[in-house]
């Protein structure tokens, strides 16, 4: 799925009826199957951008579109993953992952079959009947990832999906995500505050300025795939990271 942002502006209402500009104007095109990472200082509107693409946040002006059709509400072909795992504590792992199918009216046998096929890829096959409180942070985030993948979306919107995890788990799950993506080749838009992670995973990294967020850099990552963790020691990798960091450190104008 091709995603496009045209002159997108999002303002928030303040309690005294004023307007707080959060984002834009911003124009961006994401090609089908592209893995795009968005980095930027906190509060720059990265999450707002993701939420607008997901149809959870209306645009103040400008537009967002999926395959040239305007996005005005949540689409079933577009799945969003949130910063925390956001699981339902009263549902088992299998039923948490199956939630999107259940809401879409898929019968129990078929949705359990779909989830069971997914569990080994997520390293969750021994935890199908566990409750979220029994899981580690990394496992919970894998369940959240499963809940996104099971929808077979054509685009994935990931809002700092591994932000709450420790560095080791984070690295591992990032590479697992890349494996899953290699199989399905969805369009991915991922927000992260970790520049190394962005460069390691993405085809393209865009850098946003602080609020109201605008594009200040658009960096193509030419590293070959599949990506491996030892690429972080390469000269090209370091150059790309330095380039992104320099764009973020630009003084506010």
């Amino acid at each position: 799925m091709k995603l496009s942002l045209r002159e997108l502006v999002v303002d928030f209402k303040t309690p005294d009826a004023g307007r707080l500009p959060a984002l834009g104007p911003i124009s961006l095109e994401i090609s089908p199957g592209e893995f795009l990472c968005i980095v930027g200082p906190s509060g720059c509107g990265k999450s707002t951008l993701i939420r607008t693409l997901a149809g959870l946040q209306p645009a103040t002006s400008g537009s967002v579109a999926g395959d040239d059709l305007p996005i005005t509400g949540p689409l079933s072909t577009l799945a969003i993953m949130f910063q925390d795992a956001n699981l339902m504590p009263w549902r088992t792992v299998i039923d948490n992952i199956a939630l999107p199918l259940e809401l879409a009216g898929v019968d129990k046998a078929r949705r359990h079959k779909a989830v069971n096929e997914l569990l080994p890829q997520l390293h969750l096959q021994d935890f199908a009947l566990s409750y979220p409180a029994e899981l580690s942070g990394g496992m919970a985030q894998r369940v959240a990832l499963g809940r996104v993948i099971v929808q077979r979306p054509r685009a994935l919107l990931l809002d700092e999906p591994f932000g709450a995890l420790d560095a080791m788990t984070r690295e591992k799950i990032s590479l697992e995500l890349l494996d899953l993506w290699r199989e399905h080749r969805q369009t991915v838009v991922m927000v992260t505050h970790d520049i190394n992670e962005a460069v390691l995973m993405a085809d393209r990294v865009v850098v946003m300025s602080s609020r109201p967020g605008q594009l200040v850099a658009d960096i193509a990552i030419g590293l070959e795939r599949p990506r491996a963790i030892n690429m972080i020691y390469r000269e090209t990798f370091l150059r790309l990271v330095r380039e992104a960091r320099a764009a973020i450190d630009l003084p506010d104008s």
Binding site: A54, L56, P74, S76, F82, D84, N86, M88, L99, L103
Partner: peptide, 25 residues
């Protein structure tokens, strides 16, 4: 509110939001 967002993003009907989110929560 995050789970509410999740239900919205999954196009849940008001009844589904009540039955699958509000009631058990």
């Amino acid at each position: 509110p995050n789970l509410r967002d999740l239900m919205t993003s999954l196009n849940a009907t008001p009844w589904q939001s009540f039955r699958q989110l509000e009631l058990p929560s």
